[in-house]
Amino acid sequence: MSDQGFPSSLRLLNARDYRRVFDRAEFKVHGEGLMALAISNELGHPRVGLVFSKKHARRAVDRNRLKRLVRESIRLRQRCLPSVDIVVLAKRGVTELDNATLHRQLQSMWQRLRRHSQKRLASTS
């Protein structure tokens, strides 16, 4: 059986990690209903934190669905993503989007994040 989990090495685990991303975000990527803030890390792999408030996703079932979709997207694309810490936030109207639309939004956001990261890496070299 293959390991299909979402290990703690792929997660932002404490408030200090979240605060670091919020205070010093190098990248900001918007999607329909979602936004991602990111900052480079030295770990060699991406980590993700999720912030889905009751203000934008009223029902727990909606917040849990969003979390599940983002985790799955990161798990499947972790090898393609740059070495960054990412915080994904919900925006107004996110609960009206279906799963297929959210998957497309996330894939587009990860591609833009990878491009921004590559540009920054090229400009610092």
Rank of each mutant, 00 (worst) to 15 (best):
M1E: 08
M1N: 08
S2L: 06
D3V: 12
Q4L: 08
Q4S: 13
G5A: 13
G5M: 07
G5W: 08
G5D: 14
G5Y: 07
F6T: 08
F6C: 07
F6W: 13
P7Q: 13
S8W: 08
S8P: 11
S9C: 13
L10P: 08
L13K: 13
L13V: 06
L13T: 11
A15C: 10
R16C: 09
R16Y: 14
R16G: 10
Y18I: 09
Y18F: 15
Y18H: 09
R19Y: 13
R20G: 12
R20F: 09
F22L: 15
F22A: 11
D23A: 11
D23H: 14
R24E: 05
F27H: 13
F27V: 11
F27L: 15
V29R: 00
G31Y: 07
E32T: 14
E32W: 12
G33P: 05
G33I: 01
M35Y: 07
A36Q: 11
L37C: 10
L37E: 01
A38Q: 02
S40G: 13
S40A: 11
N41V: 07
N41M: 09
N41H: 14
N41P: 15
N41E: 12
N41W: 04
N41G: 12
E42R: 15
E42W: 08
E42N: 12
L43E: 10
L43H: 13
P46Q: 04
R47K: 15
R47L: 14
R47E: 10
R47P: 05
V48Q: 00
V48M: 01
G49W: 01
L50C: 06
F52T: 00
S53Q: 12
H56N: 15
H56A: 05
A57Q: 04
A57G: 12
R58M: 08
R59P: 05
A60H: 03
V61K: 06
D62F: 00
N64E: 09
R65T: 03
L66Q: 01
K67N: 10
K67W: 07
L69Y: 09
V70I: 10
V70H: 00
V70P: 00
R71I: 02
R71K: 07
E72R: 09
E72L: 07
S73Q: 02
S73W: 00
S73A: 10
I74N: 02
R75L: 06
R77M: 04
Q78S: 04
Q78T: 03
C80G: 08
C80S: 14
L81H: 04
P82E: 03
P82F: 01
P82Q: 02
S83R: 06
S83T: 08
S83Y: 11
S83E: 07
V84D: 02
I86T: 00
V87M: 07
V88F: 15
L89C: 08
L89D: 02
A90E: 06
R92W: 03
R92L: 05
V94M: 06
V94W: 00
T95K: 09
T95E: 13
T95F: 03
E96Y: 04
L97S: 13
N99I: 05
A100K: 08
T101C: 12
L102D: 01
R104S: 12
L106C: 03
Q107I: 02
Q107G: 06
S108H: 13
W110P: 00
W110V: 01
W110K: 01
W110Q: 04
L113F: 03
R115T: 06
H116A: 06
S117A: 11
Q118V: 12
Q118A: 11
K119M: 05
K119V: 07
R120V: 02
R120Q: 14
L121V: 04
S123Q: 09
S123F: 04
S123I: 01
